[in-house]
Simulated assay, not measured.
Amino acid sequence: MGYDGMVSVPFLIEVEALEELGFLSQPEASALAAFDAARSSIFEIARRIYSASRQTSYRIAAEDCR
């Protein structure tokens, strides 16, 4: 979840996106740890996607991480 002022902006991140960022080796066992480790990269990608267009929700896919 991100915020633009007082507006919350939901983001979903695909497991493949965590793999593309190089933070996920065992999908089920390490997804949360991978998200925490990739947090700054995820925020930067989310910022870039959000700046490109305004929507009600967003999905971060592996191709967004390249």
Rank of each mutant, 00 (worst) to 15 (best):
G2V: 10
G2R: 14
G2A: 15
G2L: 13
G2H: 14
Y3L: 10
Y3K: 08
D4L: 15
D4H: 12
G5E: 09
G5W: 02
G5L: 07
G5V: 04
M6Q: 14
M6K: 11
M6E: 14
M6W: 11
M6N: 14
S8I: 09
S8W: 08
S8F: 11
V9N: 08
V9I: 15
V9P: 09
V9L: 12
P10G: 01
P10Q: 00
P10V: 00
P10N: 00
P10W: 01
F11A: 01
F11V: 04
F11R: 07
F11I: 04
F11Y: 02
L12N: 12
L12T: 04
I13V: 15
I13G: 02
I13S: 01
I13N: 03
I13C: 11
I13T: 05
I13A: 05
E14V: 00
V15I: 15
V15S: 11
V15A: 12
E16K: 09
E16Q: 08
E16W: 00
E16C: 09
A17N: 04
L18K: 11
L18H: 09
E19T: 09
E19C: 04
E19D: 11
E19P: 03
E19N: 08
E19H: 12
E19W: 04
E20T: 11
E20N: 11
E20L: 03
E20P: 06
E20V: 03
E20D: 05
E20G: 09
L21K: 05
L21N: 07
L21P: 06
L21G: 05
G22L: 04
G22Y: 06
G22R: 04
G22Q: 01
G22F: 04
F23Y: 15
F23H: 14
F23T: 10
F23P: 03
L24K: 01
L24M: 07
L24A: 02
L24G: 03
S25F: 07
S25D: 09
Q26H: 11
Q26P: 01
P27E: 03
P27W: 04
P27H: 05
P27A: 07
P27R: 10
P27D: 01
E28V: 10
E28Y: 06
S30W: 00
S30V: 00
S30N: 07
S30D: 13
A31E: 12
A31L: 11
L32V: 09
L32S: 06
L32T: 11
L32C: 05
L32G: 02
L32F: 06
L32K: 06
